[in-house]
Simulated assay, not measured.
Amino acid sequence: MAVGRPREFDPDQVVDAAMKLFWAHGYDGVSISDVTTATGVNRRSIYAEFGSKEALYERAVQRYRTGPGGYVVEALARPTARDVAEAMLHGAADTVSGDPHGCLTVDDGPGLAQMREATVHQIAKRFDDAVADGDLSGVDTLLLARWIAAMCQGIAIQARSGASRADLHALADVALAGWPGEARKAH
């Protein structure tokens, strides 16, 4: 029985490197040559392992969602809708102010629009649960979820433009001042 050559690279390391490249430069700003330069793995091996740039990108996006973007899942588990919003906004501020700045998912890469829409619906579902529990009332939960997503995306754009982590957290606090019922509490 013939024994093949052992794999000369760790696919997870390639996915991590690709994630950082796509995060910094977007889908269109990264070529397989960029990945080979960053990892030292040749083009043929990358295609043999991942099949295509798009498939590598999809793996990189999944790595981002379970790694740096994992704050979304943690936020959705918070006990109140307000806590969810706070964890989303401040989680975004922490994640997007790292290196690289910005958010991998605020791009026009393959499948991202659908993924962002699915996330909005996850947030809306969590807010629906808060309405059913009596924690939240008098709101359009889908619209509120879109607002939170838009604020997180705006924080990411500000990070990419050079805003500091402190500024991003201050933006999150300003956004939270618009939370339903906050104006009534202030008076």
Rank of each mutant, 00 (worst) to 15 (best):
G26M: 05
Y27W: 14
D28I: 02
G29Q: 12
G29C: 11
G29P: 07
G29S: 11
V30H: 02
V30R: 02
V30C: 08
V30E: 04
S31N: 10
I32L: 14
I32H: 05
S33Y: 14
S33R: 15
S33A: 15
S33V: 13
D34C: 03
D34A: 11
D34L: 04
D34F: 02
V35T: 04
T36C: 15
T36G: 08
T36K: 10
T37D: 12
T37S: 13
T37Y: 11
A38P: 10
A38L: 11
T39D: 08
T39N: 12
T39G: 06
G40M: 12
G40K: 13
V41K: 02
N42D: 14
N42F: 03
R43Q: 15
R43D: 14
R43Y: 13
R43L: 10
R43N: 15
R43H: 13
R43E: 15
R44V: 08
R44P: 01
S45V: 07
S45F: 04
S45M: 13
S45C: 11
I46C: 02
Y47W: 15
A48C: 08
A48K: 13
E49G: 07
E49Y: 08
F50R: 00
G51T: 00
G51W: 00
S52W: 05
K53T: 02
K53V: 00
K53L: 04
E54D: 12
E54P: 04
E54V: 07
E54Y: 01
A55L: 15
A55T: 13
A55S: 14
A55F: 11
A55E: 14
L56N: 00
L56E: 05
L56A: 05
Y57T: 00
E58M: 07
E58T: 06
